[in-house]
Computed example of a mutant assay.
Amino acid sequence: MTQARSPASSATNERLAMQRGENAGLRCVALLIGQLEVGGTEKQLCLLARELRLRGVEVHVLVLSRGGPYEQTLREAGVEVHLLGFGREPSGPSMLKRNLTAFVRLVGLLRDLRPDVLHAFLHEGHMIGAVAARLARFPLVLVAGRRGLRDFEQGRGWVLALERVVTRVTDHVVANAVAVAEEARVVEGVPARKVSVIYNGLPASAFHEAEPECVDTSWPVVVCVANLRSVKGLQFLVDAAGMLLRRGRPCTVVLVGEGAERGRLEAQASALGVDVRFVGAHAETAGFLACADVVVLPSLSEGLSNAVMEAMAAGRPVVATSVGGTPELLEGRGVLVPAADPVALAEGIARLVDDPDLAASLGAAARAWAGKNLNLDVMVDEHVHLYHRLLETRRAG
């Protein structure tokens, strides 16, 4: 079995070691990702890049296709952002030429920057980054960032086979949850020695009291922060709201996010007669969390949810599906329900709305646990410690 995270005291000792100058020898880190739109992985990359920069490490963010809201945040923090120009449109001769040009640009950029570490996030970043790193033909440490389970990703056998080959030439895999690490070990066959679990981190601001957003309703407010994609299971939340309405227990659902499922969800909400507010994507969600009676995440698959983490930091009671790393966050500190089960979702929401004392106690327990285990400094320290260890191994070899 993959080992769970080390105790907080160990992380504290590592942090003290960093403060005594352990960063020496780590000159440059390149972080590779597909795009910089609003999303959990993008937020974590941004936090990591900024904190590494503050510690005196040269940081470059390499973006395969397009920038987004986090691009400006990175630039303001002094982090260089390089847009490589890969396309995402349907394939064809022109798109093939464009992507080959972008790939050559990536290889050339790696040769120019000569980073000590290339940390590639998500599936496409890992697949493209691994090949580019080897073609760059200079020694660097290649780290793959696993952020979720493959239920709704790379399901085809040939993709998995290719990923196994790429992982063999990867120095290390970082998973953001024990469940994600276990899948890498069992499904992909990654040796346990090549896998580490580093939880996502939260900045201190996530624990600050926020001014609640104004939601004009007399009903309980249920907030869900998620991209409007099928994997997030939002249709089951809308179904649950319909069940509560039919039981005479109406609620107002606030969906914070944007995506391809919006039209379908709007039609579903209209057909059921439920009050669902679509407020679009927001990089900062604290105000919406502050106005929530209950926060819900009905995902069908997750890694370690930033939305759940931020709700915990805000002290909000959470109902979420028991998938991926979510039980690691909420076991004993929230209400866990099966995936794709609107009846269980409705019962979980009603349970917390009906019992304010239970809701408050779960919210307080979640906040306390998040403060101890989801600390941004610990997350960054663990990455730096891993980078150093891998660099020392490579130099010794």
Rank of each mutant, 00 (worst) to 15 (best):
A210V: 14
V294Q: 00
G67C: 05
G334V: 07
E209Y: 04
P342S: 15
F207I: 10
S322T: 08
K97G: 13
A292F: 07
V323A: 03
F236D: 01
A177H: 06
S361L: 08
S94K: 10
V143H: 05
D355T: 10
D377S: 14
V143P: 09
L336M: 13
A130L: 06
A370Y: 08
G34S: 14
E71A: 15
L113S: 03
V187L: 14
H119D: 03
L391D: 00
I349S: 04
R367N: 06
D354W: 09
R316P: 09
V61H: 06
S10Y: 09
I128Q: 02
R246K: 15
W369L: 14
E302N: 10
L48W: 05
P220M: 09
L83M: 12
C214Y: 10
S94D: 15
L300Y: 08
G39N: 01
R277H: 09
P317N: 02
R147K: 04
R66V: 08
Q72K: 11
R146G: 12
T167Y: 06
Q154E: 12
F103E: 00
V279T: 05
K43N: 06
L244V: 09
L110T: 04
S6C: 14
M1N: 11
V353P: 01
M95G: 11
C46K: 02
A130Y: 03
R105M: 11
I33W: 00
A77F: 11
A290T: 07
I349F: 06
D171W: 05
A260P: 04
V353W: 05
H388M: 06
L64P: 03
